Simulated assay, not measured.
Amino acid sequence: MQSQDKETIAQAKRFHEVFNELRTEIGKVVVGQQHIVDNLLISLFSRGHCVLIGVPGLAKTLLIRTLSESLNLSFNRIQFTPDLMPGDITGTEIIDSDVASGKKEFKFFKGPIFANIILADEINRTPPKTQAALLEAMQEYHVTASGTTYQLDRPFFVLATQNPIEQEGTYPLPEAQLDRFMFNLWLDYPSFEEEIEIVSRTTSGLSTPVKTILSAEEIIAFQKLTRQVPVPESVLNYAVKIVNMTRPNTSYAPDFVNKYMTWGAGPRASQFLILGGKTRALADGRFNVTEEDINAIAIPVLRHRIVNNYAAEAEGIKAEDLINRILKEA
């Protein structure tokens, strides 16, 4: 075995250990939601972003802040409101005076987007122009002001939240914008036992310190490692086949897709299935991707990339139902 291979395998073993350590540290503060925590970590190490759907009070801010503390990363929460302007996110230029010389010049003051982890709270409450400023930064990893480009800190991870209940006065993200997010995660209510523990912890006045597990440099190294995980041709074909089956009126589409869907997922879904599969394999202590890895992340990757038609809505058929049927037939 070559020394480089030994080094890669050692790094993969370290990744598996670190992933479990992060689970443990986050679990000290956040009760339950293990599936959400795992997918957030998979998205981060895959260099993706997440949309998190959940009603208020389910510890979304606590979850992402705890994640940033365990990773020793800078964290900013941006509350999206109807009057929020693009410059409020990216930063703005103001006139700055030099006291000694009296000279005045424009100086760029960075906005809250200049952090490693961003919680974009209720992103659907702000107009499309402001949404676009965040989404452009997510895609390009930089901000441009008056012709000058400012690079964002790496790693850069955005978690955008949406409230599924209050839809009045909101600006839903269009499908083309949602496609930039790797995962669409749904946060459920805690179980009865979990809620008892939550109330007990939060009303005692005690706080649990979170140990720092990783540095920014180590995270970037792990993000590069995930791309080195080999994918068998059969698994690659399987992932692409699943995505092709979501596209109505194509040769791969089953009859129920033609009946209940108006739009399917694009190539970015195939890319995220493979990237997420690679990261999940490493987290599980393996250096190879299986169909099980693809199946495990298929729903959060696909459900915001497919559009059901009126027939599906009339019969109460959800995106998750169609994805599960596709996985059974693939």
Rank of each mutant, 00 (worst) to 15 (best):
P230L: 05
G205S: 07
L214A: 02
S191W: 06
M245E: 12
N163I: 06
V307F: 09
R65I: 11
I78E: 02
V229F: 11
A314K: 13
K259E: 09
S270Y: 03
E166F: 08
T250R: 10
E93M: 02
E25C: 11
D96M: 11
G277W: 06
N72R: 03
W263S: 00
L178Y: 07
S3R: 13
R325K: 12
L73P: 01
N184S: 14
Y252G: 03
A100Y: 15
V301H: 00
P127D: 00
A221H: 14
T130G: 09
E233D: 01
L135N: 05
G57K: 05
I213L: 09
P190H: 09
Q167G: 02
T149F: 10
G27K: 02
N20L: 14
E313C: 03
L159S: 03
P164G: 08
I36E: 10
V301R: 06
K278Y: 07
E233N: 11
Q223S: 02
E193T: 15
E194I: 07
A298E: 01
E175I: 13
R125F: 09
H16M: 03
F75P: 02
S200H: 01
T202A: 12
P232A: 11
N324L: 13
I113F: 09
N244W: 07
E291N: 13
H142R: 13
Q223M: 08
K6T: 03
G32L: 06
L206Q: 10
L62G: 02
I306P: 14
R180M: 01
K104N: 02
L322M: 07
L206V: 15
F287Y: 15
L206S: 07
P174W: 10
K259F: 08
V229D: 08
I299R: 02
S191F: 04
V51K: 08
L159G: 01
P209F: 12
L41A: 04
G57N: 04
H304K: 02
A59M: 01
A115G: 04
L159D: 06
G48N: 05
E122L: 03
P248T: 14
A239G: 05
G91A: 15
I294P: 00
Q34G: 01
A281L: 12
Q131T: 03
E7H: 15
T66Q: 05
Q4H: 14
D255V: 10
P209M: 12
F272K: 00
L206N: 01
R227D: 15
H142T: 14
L135I: 05
L327A: 09
T149G: 08
V229A: 00
D188P: 06
P155V: 02
G277D: 14
N124F: 06
L52Q: 01
E7V: 14
